[in-house]
Computed example of a mutant assay.
Amino acid sequence: MSLDDLDFALLRALSTDASQSAGALGRELGLSQPATWRRIKRLEEAGIITGRRLELDAEKLGFGVTVFLGVKLATKGRLSLEDFERAVTAIPEVQSIEHVLGLYDYRLRVVARDISDFERVLRRRIMTLPGVGNVDANVLLSDERRPGPLGAA
Rank of each mutant, 00 (worst) to 15 (best):
M1W: 00
S2Q: 13
L3M: 14
D5L: 13
L6E: 07
R12K: 13
A13S: 14
T16C: 05
D17M: 01
A18M: 04
S19D: 09
Q20C: 02
A22D: 13
A22N: 13
L25T: 08
L25C: 04
R27V: 14
L29E: 07
L31W: 02
L31A: 07
S32C: 03
Q33G: 01
A35G: 03
T36M: 05
R38M: 10
R38K: 11
R38H: 09
R39H: 03
R39V: 00
K41E: 06
R42F: 04
A46D: 01
G47R: 01
I49K: 06
L54R: 04
L56S: 01
L56H: 01
L56F: 05
K60D: 01
K60M: 07
F63Q: 11
F63S: 12
F63D: 10
F63M: 15
G64F: 02
T66G: 05
V67S: 09
V67P: 00
F68T: 09
V71N: 04
L73C: 08
T75G: 05
G77S: 12
E82H: 08
V88K: 04
I91E: 12
I91Q: 10
I91W: 12
I91D: 15
I91P: 11
Q95M: 14
Q95L: 12
S96R: 04
H99G: 06
L103A: 12
L103V: 11
D105G: 06
D105I: 07
Y106I: 12
R107A: 14
L108N: 12
L108T: 06
V110Y: 01
V111L: 12
R113M: 04
D114Y: 02
D117S: 14
D117G: 09
F118Q: 06
F118S: 02
R120T: 02
V121C: 02
V121A: 03
L122H: 05
R125N: 11
I126R: 01
I126F: 06
V132C: 13
V132T: 09
G133P: 03
D136V: 10
A137H: 03
N138T: 08
V139E: 05
L140V: 15
L141P: 02
E144S: 07
R145K: 10
A152W: 07
